[in-house]
């Protein structure tokens, strides 16, 4: 699914932290694949590159109205690789611009009906859209890499479910990674060591409570720092620490910290 750069390029060895970004897993439901068809290509105006891709596909299902609230990843039911639940294809598309230096800026969207609208030819509900728009950035300047992704989700939730399910979600992350050393280390000819920091924020229910006027919680913020040792460019051994603040729907705060050790490579 061409929604957000992370979903297109989610291989763990590309990254230097253990956990994936919150916006790219909790709002954009990476890893997100689907059945469908489309076209893609590239244009080369001058020294620039413009890529595009657009697909028609089954899309998310009504599992996204989950018990815990609106959860787009729950909409990736196993049926998405079989018959569509509403016979109306979703659309996903992304355009990206590569300037004449190591960078890419992408804009992508997805929209599609998520609910079952007919059963045996009889209409049982009107079609309801789940839509996502995402902006992503990946730029490399010397030994420094800057990555970021932001997304907004809009969901047409039935009136009777609006107290429990969000109609809007939003979030983003910004990650800065810097190569500290590249030289022979231990037995590795071109080893390198990276330091990385990432800020994450998601709001899974953007809005206010009708009863009290308070903001609805259901938010998370996280700061992650890490060191990544790459004995070879495609292998990363990382030591990370992240600290997460989570607001439940009633705005109760919980704080959690974790130290993680990870290894990622291709084999």
């Amino acid at each position: 699914m061409p929604v957000g750069r992370f979903n297109l390029a989610h291989d763990s060895p590309r990254y230097d932290l253990v956990d994936r970004p919150l916006v790219s897993t909790r709002i954009i439901p990476s890893t997100w694949s689907d059945i469908g068809g489309g076209l893609f290509g590239a244009l080369y105006p001058g020294r620039h590159k413009l890529t595009y891709e657009v697909y028609l596909l089954n899309g998310l299902g009504d599992g996204l109205l989950a018990g815990a609230g609106t959860r787009l990843p729950e909409g990736r039911g196993p049926d998405r690789f079989a018959e569509d639940n509403n016979g109306s294809p979703g659309v996903a598309a992304r355009v990206a611009w590569d300037p004449p230096f190591k960078a890419e800026v992408g804009l992508s969207f997805y929209t599609g009906l998520y609910n079952r609208t007919q059963q045996e030819g009889v209409t049982i509900d009107r079609g309801r859209l789940a839509s996502l728009i995402a902006l992503d950035l990946d730029a490399q300047i010397g030994p420094v890499t800057l990555r970021g992704e932001g997304a907004v989700a809009l969901i047409d939730v039935p009136e009777e479910s609006r107290a429990l399910h969000a109609r809007m979600q939003a979030g983003g992350f910004l990650e800065l990674s810097a190569r500290l050393v590249r030289r022979r280390m231990l037995a590795f000819e071109a080893a390198s060591l990276y330091a990385v920091v990432r800020l994450d924020y998601i709001d899974l229910d953007v809005g206010r409570r009708r009863a009290t006027g308070e903001r609805v919680g259901d938010e998370s913020a996280r700061i992650s720092v890490g060191l990544s040792f790459r004995p070879a460019p495609v292998t990363s051994l990382r030591l990370c620490y992240d600290h997460t603040w989570t607001l439940d729907p009633l705005n109760n705060v919980t704080r959690s910290g974790a130290i993680q050790l990870g290894v990622a490579s291709y084999f």
Binding site: G67, L164, R209, A211, T212, L250, N252
Partner: peptide, 23 residues
């Protein structure tokens, strides 16, 4: 769950085993 209901879990009405939020 349902077909009609008020909340989807015990803890939704009794957060942290406490009293319910007006919502």
């Amino acid at each position: 769950l349902g077909p009609v209901f008020n909340q989807p879990s015990c803890a939704s009405c009794h957060p942290g085993d406490g009293r319910g939020h007006p919502a």
